[in-house]
């Protein structure tokens, strides 16, 4: 298998995620972009795991952990966003600057 294809896919996914995190105003979309970045990492982990033909599949196990963490993170993140919306009637990230000087 050519390693370049999955790595390219991972890099694209990660770049899209970075863009989403830095540029989107909607907090839900920012969270989704973080999921993209995590999944880009998962792609890399699985690809390298297969490429080096390891017998105990550490890369794949690690990917499973990341998926679990990502699920927990999204749960907490959406809860925070929901609460912010209830308090401030908005989820525009530019307007949520409570820690400003």
């Amino acid at each position: 298998m050519n390693l370049a294809w999955p790595l390219t896919l991972g890099a694209l996914l990660f770049s899209i995620g970075v863009y989403g995190v830095l540029a989107r105003r909607n907090a839900v979309l920012v969270l989704m972009s973080i999921e993209l970045m995590l999944n880009a990492v998962n792609v890399n982990l699985v690809a390298f795991s297969t490429w080096i033909r390891e017998t105990i599949a550490i890369g794949q196990i690690f990917a499973l952990f990341v998926i679990t963490i990502a699920a927990a993170e999204v749960g907490i993140g959406l809860a925070i966003v929901l609460l912010i919306f209830r308090n401030r009637e908005t989820i525009n990230i530019d307007e949520i600057d409570l820690l400003k000087w």
Binding site: V18, V21, L22, A23, V30, I93, D94, I96, D97, L98, L99, K100, W101
Partner: peptide, 17 residues
């Protein structure tokens, strides 16, 4: 220096990257 602390999470992330 206080102006760096904008409260804008995306700016912080941008600095990080």
């Amino acid at each position: 220096l206080k102006y760096l602390q904008s409260g804008d999470v995306q700016k912080y992330a941008a600095y990080l990257f």
